[in-house]
């Protein structure tokens, strides 16, 4: 079937089997390998994408469900060559080690900050609790999300 949706701000139409997983469509058909797969069962969050601005797991979504949606992957978080406060803060605060959880983690954090622009550390921990990280112990991730929240609040230009 043909599935039409907006991907990172661009309208696309794909001819794919409707029962393929969204994560496979993104990685294999579209080459967007920033979306990772860590478990295939909704237990790790590595495949997180934004669907109409909400963080969802692309391993538990079928291609047909992409239809008509606004999809944002990590590659589309920073539009038109600009930067986004979250990846910047992750770099600055040492929140990246192996980096395999990082795209999903950043998208999960982006959804959190949409809903709660000034979260406490506990709220950040709760907000990213569906994204497993095996390297960092999360503390520097929490630091980074807190700083990105401040940056967004202060309206720092995404330069």
């Amino acid at each position: 079937m043909t599935v039409q949706f907006n991907l990172n701000g661009r309208r696309i139409a794909l001819d794919v089997d409707p029962d393929r997983r969204a994560v496979d469509i993104l990685r294999e058909e579209l080459g967007l390998t920033g979306t990772k797969e860590g478990c295939g069962a909704g237990e790790c969050g590595a495949c997180t994408i934004l669907v109409d601005g909400v963080n969802r797991l692309s391993c538990l979504m079928l291609a047909a469900q992409l239809s008509g949606r606004e999809i944002t992957t990590i590659e589309g978080l920073s539009r038109e060559g600009g930067t986004h406060p979250l990846p910047e803060a992750f770099v600055k605060h040492g929140a990246v080690q192996c980096g395999f959880c990082t795209p999903g983690m950043i998208l999960g954090a982006a959804a959190l900050l949409q809903e709660n622009p000034a979260p406490t550390r506990d709220e950040i921990r709760r907000g990213i609790s569906g994204n497993l990280c095996r390297c960092t112990g999360y503390q520097k991730i929490v630091d980074a999300v807190a700083e990105a929240a401040r940056a967004i609040q202060e309206g720092e230009p995404s330069s």
């Binding site: 967007l32 390998t33 770099v91 040492g94 990246v96 980096g99 990082t102 950043i106």
Partner: peptide
């Protein structure tokens, strides 16, 4: 700062 971090955070590290 880790030089590998920006590409990993942007999802472009292979």
């Amino acid at each position: 700062l880790r030089p590998d971090a920006p590409a990993k955070a942007a999802g472009v590290e292979k």
